[in-house]
Computed example of a mutant assay.
Amino acid sequence: MKNNIGFNIVFALIAFPIGIALISDTDFSTFTFKKPALDAVYLITFVVAIFLMLKKNKREQGNNKQP
């Protein structure tokens, strides 16, 4: 069986600037965010974008199955 993990460039383009914003807003000496409410939204959006970028394609073969 073939691995159907796809890569969606649209969600990659969404995740990249959000990830950069999260890194720039993080204070690594105390492990806190500069703007906690906004960075929580960024974090949720980043995780969803990564999930959607790497989710499996659900294209069914239907009647084209080989014996």
Results as ranks from 00 to 15, higher is better:
1 M>P: 11
3 N>R: 00
3 N>K: 06
3 N>H: 05
3 N>Q: 03
4 N>C: 13
4 N>T: 15
4 N>W: 10
5 I>F: 12
6 G>N: 12
6 G>W: 05
6 G>R: 05
7 F>E: 04
7 F>C: 00
7 F>D: 03
7 F>M: 00
9 I>F: 08
10 V>E: 11
11 F>K: 11
11 F>I: 08
12 A>P: 04
13 L>D: 02
13 L>A: 14
14 I>S: 09
14 I>F: 15
14 I>T: 04
15 A>N: 02
15 A>G: 02
16 F>Y: 15
16 F>N: 10
16 F>S: 09
16 F>Q: 08
17 P>V: 07
17 P>Y: 00
18 I>S: 03
18 I>F: 04
21 A>S: 15
22 L>F: 03
22 L>A: 04
22 L>M: 09
23 I>P: 10
25 D>C: 10
26 T>P: 07
27 D>Y: 04
27 D>T: 05
28 F>Y: 06
29 S>C: 04
31 F>N: 07
32 T>N: 06
33 F>R: 12
34 K>E: 03
34 K>T: 05
35 K>P: 01
35 K>D: 13
35 K>A: 15
36 P>H: 05
38 L>N: 07
40 A>K: 14
40 A>L: 10
41 V>H: 06
41 V>M: 08
43 L>Y: 07
43 L>W: 04
43 L>T: 09
43 L>P: 03
45 T>E: 09
45 T>R: 02
46 F>I: 03
46 F>P: 00
46 F>T: 01
47 V>A: 14
48 V>C: 14
49 A>D: 01
49 A>N: 02
52 L>Q: 09
52 L>N: 10
53 M>Q: 08
56 K>G: 04
57 N>E: 13
58 K>I: 10
58 K>L: 15
59 R>C: 12
59 R>E: 15
60 E>V: 12
61 Q>T: 07
61 Q>F: 12
62 G>V: 03
63 N>P: 09
64 N>W: 05
64 N>M: 05
67 P>Q: 03
